[in-house]
């Protein structure tokens, strides 16, 4: 089933959802957000499916990260209530007109967990397994061989992908271990 992609300004969000629902896209599959700290925006996306018509649309809009407010689409698609509640909890987007934006999982004291700038405590506590390197355990030098003629190739310290450098746990040297 092909998926049409559509972007609208935030003030057209609810009206466009209503038009799509009126045109048969009545199944709400997903409503979620993508945080873009560099651009200072949060994208809000909704995936709507017209099941008998075998059509689907991915509708997208953007709100300012500083003050993310968007019209709720609960009046158009009641199933969006729970998704908006979750997006509010995880990304801090306020959906004007949604009657119940209470958090589902968090106690509200750790920021917005799915914003890219929110540190993940588990990532800070766990050691990244990717720093291991088989070349750290080279074969023993053959008996009688002198010192290796070439110095060990210096390797840059690898960092876990997707984890900002300022989150990385300190190395033993940086932590001042003996």
């Amino acid at each position: 089933m092909r998926c049409a992609e559509l972007a609208v300004p935030a003030d057209r969000w609810r009206a466009t959802c209503a038009e799509l629902a009126g045109a048969g896209h009545t199944m709400l599959d997903l409503l979620t957000c993508i945080d873009d700290p560099a651009a200072g925006r949060i994208a809000v996306l909704v995936h709507l499916v017209d099941v008998p018509g075998r059509r689907r649309v991915l509708l997208r809009t953007e709100v300012a990260r500083e003050d993310p407010v968007l019209d709720s689409i609960v009046a158009v698609l009641p199933g969006a209530a729970w998704h908006e509640r979750e997006a509010h909890e995880m990304f801090g987007v306020r959906f004007a007109g949604n009657p119940d934006l209470r958090p589902l999982l968090t106690t509200g004291d750790m920021g917005f967990p799915l914003r890219r700038t929110t540190p993940l405590p588990a990532r800070l506590q766990a050691a990244w397994p990717g720093t291991a390197d088989p070349a750290d355990r080279p074969p023993p030098a053959p008996p009688g061989a002198g010192a290796p003629r070439t110095a060990a190739r210096p390797r840059t310290r690898l960092a876990p992908p997707g984890v900002p450098a300022e989150w990385s746990p300190p190395t033993p040297e940086e932590a001042g271990a003996p």
Binding site: P134, R137, P138, P139
Partner: peptide, 8 residues
């Protein structure tokens, strides 16, 4: 996670 060593 994996552990490996090198051999000739």
């Amino acid at each position: 996670s994996l552990q490996a060593h090198q051999e000739h």
